[in-house]
Simulated assay, not measured.
Amino acid sequence: MKMTDPVQLPSSQPLVLAELADSTRAAAEAFISAGTAANTVRSYRSALTYWSAWLRLRYGHVLGDAPLPATVAVQFVLDHLARPLADGTWAHLLPPAIDVALVTARVKGGLGALAFNTVSHRLSVLGKWHRLNGWANPCEEPALKTLLRDARKAQSRQGVTVRKKTAIVLEPLQALLATCTDGVRGVRDRALLLLAWSGGGRRRSEVVGLQVGDVRQLDVDTWLYALGTTKTDTGGVHREKPLRGPAAQALAAWLVAAPADSGPLFRRLYKGDKVGTTALSADQVARIVQRRAQLAGLDGDWAAHSLRSGFITEAGRQGVPLGEVMAMTEHRSVTTVMGYFQAGSLLDSRASQLLGPTPIASEAAPEPAAGSKGTSVFCASAMTNAGD
């Protein structure tokens, strides 16, 4: 497929998603056959649907049986990333008629530029789709990498930052747990929060995928739970992870409150604290975190990923060796986990306390000592990145 200059289709020609389905489905099936986790496949399918829609409107093509040239990937970036102009305004190259068509077709949430992370994710999906097909990856072109790097710098200079989720380190975790006093719901939420956090910073898909048969008790203070297929391990071989102390006790309490021989470990609750048989959804895990944070009166941008980033940050803070942390989280990339880990370890580093204890600024507003694990550490933890 040869593509040169973008061609805008007439706005009167509507985008019919049914016409995109075959190519998108075929592309998604390639990920499935490669053993990609189900949640990741859904994310990839959404990105590929967007690529098909944009290509159809921009060039009159959809994803097909041929690789895309690097110029198309460059055009995608220019169409979707806003750049600052000399007069202080921002602009991007996506024609308004195409923007409206994408929103109307419900493949785009709203008019305007996309976030940097969204564009990066869609380029990553396109690159993986090419690799699975044995094609040259257009996203590896030096010109595209330079463009992305310069775009990130330009946005950073203008104060546009990557949105980051607040990490749940020890203090906010304790605050969340303190709200879990509302009957069976509180018992369930406490067990879920502690398993997800203490059990290695589990992803929400991993938490809701756990079955009753995946957990077993060793003693009063020790349980093991087994992970199967995950985002980073698609082999399906079960690996057991430990739950100790409060986490083990919380899990035991939940299984007493909601006994079951099989089925999902964490289930939905209905009126009157009746425990259902249906597993919680991944979105419900996020809502549990957000609800508990609201009840605790905590400010921040909370999500299910806050448990994962918080576990790693707290591990760095307490000096746990990186290898032990990665054995629990099952991160494959040291680069990914180091952003969290270093943020935590530097909070109590001697290098951050070379001047000694911070002097009191005024009698009315005393400052905590440097290295204190109180509110100042909690605020600093909010800077951790949500990259996984």
Rank of each mutant, 00 (worst) to 15 (best):
M1V: 10
M3V: 14
D5R: 15
D5A: 13
P6Y: 08
V7E: 11
V16T: 15
L17H: 14
S23L: 04
R25T: 14
R25G: 10
A28L: 09
A28E: 10
R42P: 01
S43I: 02
S43R: 06
Y44K: 06
A47H: 13
L48F: 10
L48V: 10
T49N: 15
L57R: 13
R58C: 01
A66D: 10
P67E: 04
V74G: 06
F76M: 03
D79W: 02
D79V: 02
R83V: 11
A86L: 10
D87T: 00
T89D: 01
T89M: 02
W90I: 00
A91Y: 01
H92Y: 00
L102R: 05
R106H: 13
G109L: 13
L114S: 15
A115T: 15
F116Q: 12
V125A: 13
L126S: 03
H130L: 04
L132N: 08
N133L: 06
N137Q: 09
N137L: 06
P138S: 01
E140F: 07
T146E: 04
L147Y: 02
L147Q: 05
R152D: 10
Q155G: 14
V160C: 01
T166V: 11
A167W: 03
A167C: 08
L173C: 09
Q174H: 07
L176T: 06
D182G: 07
G183F: 08
G186K: 04
R188C: 08
R188Q: 07
D189E: 14
D189S: 11
L193T: 11
S198A: 15
G199R: 03
R202H: 08
V208C: 01
V212W: 11
V212G: 08
G213Y: 12
Q217V: 07
G228C: 05
T229L: 12
G235T: 15
V237A: 14
V237K: 15
H238I: 06
R239D: 13
A248N: 04
L255P: 05
R267Q: 06
R267D: 00
Y270K: 10
G276I: 00
G276S: 04
T277V: 08
D283S: 15
R287C: 11
I288R: 00
A293Y: 02
A296F: 04
D299M: 09
L307Y: 05
S309P: 00
G310V: 04
F311E: 03
I312C: 06
R317H: 07
P321K: 09
G323P: 00
V325R: 05
M326P: 02
A327D: 13
A327F: 05
M328D: 00
M328V: 05
R332K: 14
V337K: 03
M338Q: 13
M338C: 02
Q342S: 09
A343M: 08
S349C: 03
G356S: 08
S362R: 07
S362I: 01
E363K: 10
A364W: 09
A365I: 13
E367D: 14
E367Y: 11
A369Y: 04
A369T: 12
K373A: 04
T375C: 01
T375E: 08
V377K: 08
F378Q: 14
F378D: 14
S381P: 06
A386I: 09
